[in-house]
Structure formats: structure tokens, C-alpha cells
Design a protein around this nucleic acid. Structure first.
Lengths: 201, 201
DNA sequence: ATGTGTGCAAAAAATTTGCATGTCC
DNA sequence: GGACATGCAAATTTTTTGCACACAT
């Protein structure tokens, strides 16, 4: 199922190169470039998926690229294609497990390793660009540490994750602050329940 | 660190026996009872920890025993010492990972297997006696599916989990129901943030 | 040029499953 | 007595880590 890096996808690479604002060489496709397959394992590869409509993902992405580059530079860290791809994936997916992020990234760059995804998610969280929560079951899900915070509505029926303005919590958070001295982090609230569609059934 | 089943702890076993309302034989301490240690692995064992003050845990526990026995019977399932111990552990711990539950159970019955804990937690959740959520980081935490539901206040600073009446959500849940048709499960809400003590620092 | 990041493989941790045996009803 | 649970071990799955090599700066 993996792509062998037959060719580099222009659109994607171009954007990356631009974002990195660097030399004109190869941005991605690291090790063993020319090597056929020395030891059976697949190396870096590309694929030409990725539809480019002007989704909110797109918007976030470009903003993110700048922010990412900037924040990394500040901390003496490096901007790599993998890091950008992981960040984009998180923005695109909205809420995703490390594994889902990996799959998403793999659509574009098949060779990116899962451990890199883990390491990168951790880094991005450190930096403050993404956060992780635990929606419903199992694995942790990562999502953008959006400037505009939102409250999650997780449906137990269909698993959909919807969002609403954190302002719905104004009353509650005031009350909790007053009565308990507890400051609610409204950017990390999830309500579980049943959505309209599932309730109808 | 494991206890070898030198003797059975009276207090605990008594309660179990009573709850099970069964014969007067051994309630716990299954396989290899008399066997010294045939194959290196520790078998069932007991310990005499467990302080018995009248905590809310105690209260929950007795109520739970009845409920558990009853619900199990209804579904043609069996009441076992393991199941009771796991349930008690969940009540006592408040919020705990499968591993923590296992440790707690092990304080009383050292031989209970971790896989039994997993299986039992799943069963208890099925039955509706416990629920699991994902507080802050890492692993899932199980807690009693209390009759009186409550909202969790999880402090990111000290990790403390406080609880408040779900009534604080009345406004929000009404609003969400009206505007989004989303029915909030108020028994499973967690707010993350900073508690009074940590905010002071 | 050089220190950082990545892929890879293996280790560690967490969770699940099959099976033989023991036990609840 | 018979079905159901449990312990145990092994299989899976998820996450972490050590290392050598490549690459961003």
C-alpha cells in the first residue's frame, strides 16, 4: 500500500519550499534517495492526493506555516517537511489520533515514520500549536490550539464532533469561578451526548 | 512484592461471603490453593491492608454489592469475588486507570490478573455500574456511574479532581438542546482548568 | 560544518485473546 | 452438571527509545 517515491508531487512540495523559504533543492525525500531498496523497507515516497479547495484547513495551514517557522526559529529548532505535514494534518483532520495523523501525512509523504509523528505531535504541543484531549474512547486526539477556542460536542451515537462557541459556557464558568475559585479552560471542554440525528432514531 | 496467600483476611472475606450469600466455603482463592508454587508464578493471595472507616467508599460499596449481585443475576451472569473487588476499587479510588484498579485490588487479593480487571471493567461498564472517561492525560479512568451525577473539575496544576452538581449545566444544556438539538450527557462532563489553590501560586 | 531530526528496529507499555482449568448457580 | 470466569501466556496494538545517517541552518 505504500508508494515508492516515484516522483515528487509538485503542488505540495512547492508550498513546502515556499514556506521554508530556502534554497531550491529537494525539500523532502531524505535518506536513501537514489537507492532502489537496499534493505527491503520502503523509503520516502509521495502520492498525489490532497484536494486543494479553500477550506478552513487551507487558511489555517498558511497561517500555521508562518507561525511554525517563526516559533521554531525562536527556539533554535528546525523547520522540516515532516513537521509541516503533521501540523497540516492536525489542522485538516480537526481531531485525530496519532495514528490518523500518520495516515493523513502518509497520503502526501508515505515515508514519514510513525515515531516521527509522535515526536512531532509532542513538539507541536510543547510549542503550543496543538493540544490533545481525550474525546470519547481510546486514544488521545490532537487538534489545533486554535486562537478561537471552541467547545466540543461529541455524539456517542455517530461519533461526530461538532463545535460551538465557548460563550455558551460564560454562565457556568462565572459561577464556578465565584463559587469554587475554579478557572475553567474553555478551550478544552467536551460535552458528550447525543446529536439531533442520532436522537431521532 | 506479591503476597503468597498465607492466610485469608477475615474482614474482607466475610463481607464478600455475605454479599455473595452463598455456601460457607472459600469465596476467593481459586486455583492451586494447596499447591506451594508449582510453576514459579504467584497464585491467589491476600493481604491485610484496607482500613475500614465509614467513608463514602464504604457506603457505595455496600449499596454496590447489592446492586451488583442483582444486576448480574438479572443478566444470568455470576457474582465473583473478583468482580466485587474491582467494583469496590473503582468506588474507593474515585478515578482510576485499569492499572491503578488492578493495584488496588491486588492489595486485597494479590492473585487477580490484570486481564480479569480489564474484562471486569468492561463488564461493569456494560452493566452500567461504572463509566470511563479520559481525564487530562494518558489512560482512561474509570469511576462509579453514580446515581447522582456530577461534573468533574480537573485541575491542570495539581491534578486534583473535584466535583460539582450537574445543575450548573442546566443553562448550557438547555441552550444546546434548543439551538443544536444536542442532548448533553451531564454525567460525563469534565472541565479542565486551574483550581483556587493553584491559581494562588 | 555541525548539531538536530528522521527513519528504522527493537524495547517497553498497554490491551486483547485463546485455552485449560476451576468454580458459581 | 454445565456454563461461565479466571489465570496464564501469547498475540496485538500503542508508544517510546537508541542509533546511524542525512539534512536544515
Amino acid at each position: 500500500m505504500r508508494v515508492e517515491l516515484p516522483e515528487r508531487p509538485r503542488a505540495e512540495v512547492d508550498r513546502l519550499e515556499h514556506a521554508v523559504a530556502t534554497h531550491g533543492g529537494e525539500v523532502v525525500g531524505p535518506q536513501n534517495r537514489g537507492v532502489g531498496r537496499d534493505h527491503a523497507t520502503t523509503q520516502y515516497g509521495y502520492d498525489s492526493h490532497k484536494s486543494s479547495s479553500l477550506t478552513t484547513g487551507e487558511y489555517h495551514r498558511s497561517v500555521a506555516s508562518d507561525t511554525l517557522a517563526q516559533v521554531l526559529r525562536e527556539r533554535g529548532l528546525r523547520l522540516t517537511a515532516q513537521r509541516q505535514l503533521v501540523l497540516e494534518a492536525v489542522y485538516d483532520l480537526g481531531h485525530a489520533t496519532p495514528d490518523q495523523v500518520h495516515c493523513k501525512v502518509a497520503e502526501t509523504a508515505a515515508g514519514v515514520n510513525i515515531s516521527t509523528v509522535y515526536r512531532t505531535l509532542e513538539l507541536l504541543e510543547d510549542i503550543g500549536l496543538v493540544t490533545h484531549t481525550h474525546l470519547s474512547h481510546g486514544a488521545p486526539t490532537y487538534h489545533a490550539a486554535a486562537e478561537e477556542q471552541h467547545v466540543h460536542l461529541v455524539c456517542r451515537g455517530c461519533g461526530r464532533v461538532d463545535e460551538v462557541q465557548p460563550s455558551v459556557l460564560d454562565g457556568v464558568s462565572d459561577q464556578l469561578a465565584r463559587e469554587r475559585g475554579f478557572t475553567v479552560d474553555v478551550g478544552h471542554v467536551s460535552f458528550f451526548g447525543e446529536c439531533r440525528d442520532c436522537a431521532g432514531g
